[in-house]
Design a protein around this nucleic acid. Structure first.
Lengths: 141, 141
DNA sequence: GCTTGACCTGGAGCGCGCTCCAGGTTCTAC
DNA sequence: GTAGAACCTGGAGCGCGCTCCAGGTCAAGC
């Protein structure tokens, strides 16, 4: 009867907050803040109340970071996280959120491309302007 | 001797702050804030001290908005505006700033594309998941 | 057992980019 | 000339997304 329950060494691997911070690029404070804000469900603890992140926590964090990097606000991520916590019944709602976010992202990317090419024009303009001002450089070589 | 100096009706067109706000999508407060912050050189005034924006002001504002929309911070825009105010001698510096900004923009756009396609995968995954859960819908029609 | 560094909590503070406010002046239309 | 809308200034306030702090507890190596 020593092997019915998972023994300590059978447990899935877990990471300290410092390791997760290192890996995600988030600070300790930000990780704790995300948990306090409800973006992450309460992370498992040691008997001494220290966080131990598991693989699933890391996957979720990576997804959150993708949302953040594509410009989703904390409050929208909170909304998404709440839906997720409610389980499979909210899959359609989450899909709708992702589709809307994706569409906004497409808009922003279009705008960025437009602005980027306007910047390119300006840069080219400055380059020509500088070339014209130092015409001797070439003639002397 | 009545036509040597530009008469009032010869003046170039100008716009009130409300018209510029309407046109740029910025609020009155933001326009005043940008001027106070040194992003815009002091705009011309009526004798009664009310702002009258001219064509050159609008062009510069549009350029600033392009920098802002591509993620440049106010303090970097202040730096750029200071260089511009110093005149042609700073063209090379401004070009360097624009090139760096453009490179950062390219990086961010690459990251956005990566994240966008990861989002697309997730969206597809949810779509399949929903389809599988309601297999009857098709069979009955 | 002790030391030292990592970790905990609740709550205050901060930098950014505006936004709002009070109290006053100017412009426009009648 | 007057009413009402638009504008002015300096400065306070705000929402966001963290970041820092104080005052403690816990864990790992010696």
């Amino acid at each position: 009867m020593t092997s019915g329950q998972p023994l300590p060494q059978d447990r899935e691997p877990s990471w300290t907050i410092a390791q997760v911070a290192e890996r995600t690029g988030l600070s300790h404070d930000t990780l704790r803040y995300y948990e306090k804000a409800g973006l992450i469900e309460r992370v498992g603890r040691t008997t001494g109340n220290q966080r131990r992140y598991e693989a699933a926590d890391l996957l979720w964090l990576e997804f959150l970071l993708r949302l953040r990097e594509t410009g989703m606000s904390i409050s929208d991520m909170q909304h998404y996280a709440r839906l997720r916590a409610e389980g499979d019944a909210t899959v359609a709602d989450r899909l709708a959120m992702l589709r809307e976010h994706r569409a906004e992202l497409a808009d922003r990317m279009r705008a960025l491309r437009r602005n980027a090419s306007a910047l390119d024009d300006k840069i080219e303009h400055y380059e020509r302007l500088l070339d014209e001002r130092r015409p001797g450089t070439d003639e002397l070589t």
